[in-house]
């Protein structure tokens, strides 16, 4: 179970990760999701090298087939990440969008 307190604590870190550009290092298309992600499957999870040198793993959204390649340029955006569950708090987090 994700505690609302943990969501609140983690979401304070998100701002620093928004609007960053990067390139896809590797990716996968998830067909069998974990609990909380059933409605989104299949979806793309990408490992991206950000311009600041840091790597980050998150979902890729708004993609077309041509974007699914190593080296594709992306930028970080704010999105809902998973089902809110019983607590009802919508968890937001970082995802990538092709540019």
């Amino acid at each position: 179970m994700i505690s609302p307190v943990k969501i609140w604590r983690n979401q304070k870190r998100i701002r620093q990760l928004l609007g960053l550009k990067g390139k896809i290092v590797s990716f996968t298309k998830i067909f069998v999701p974990p609990a909380g992600f059933e409605a989104q499957a299949p979806y793309i999870v990408a490992l991206v090298k950000l311009a600041n040198g840091q790597n980050f793993t998150a979902q890729l959204v708004d993609w077309e087939d041509k974007h699914l390649q190593i080296g594709q340029k992306v930028k970080t955006v704010l999105r809902k990440t998973r089902d809110p569950g019983e607590e009802g708090i919508i968890p937001y987090g970082v995802k990538f969008r092709p540019i």
Partner: peptide
Amino acid sequence: AQMLMGAGTDAEREAGATFPGLYAIMARC
């Protein structure tokens, strides 16, 4: 799958990654 992701990081869990997914990322590399 969700409980097994207890072995991963917060970012990987928030991404909806699974262990097959993480190994798939390594496989592609």
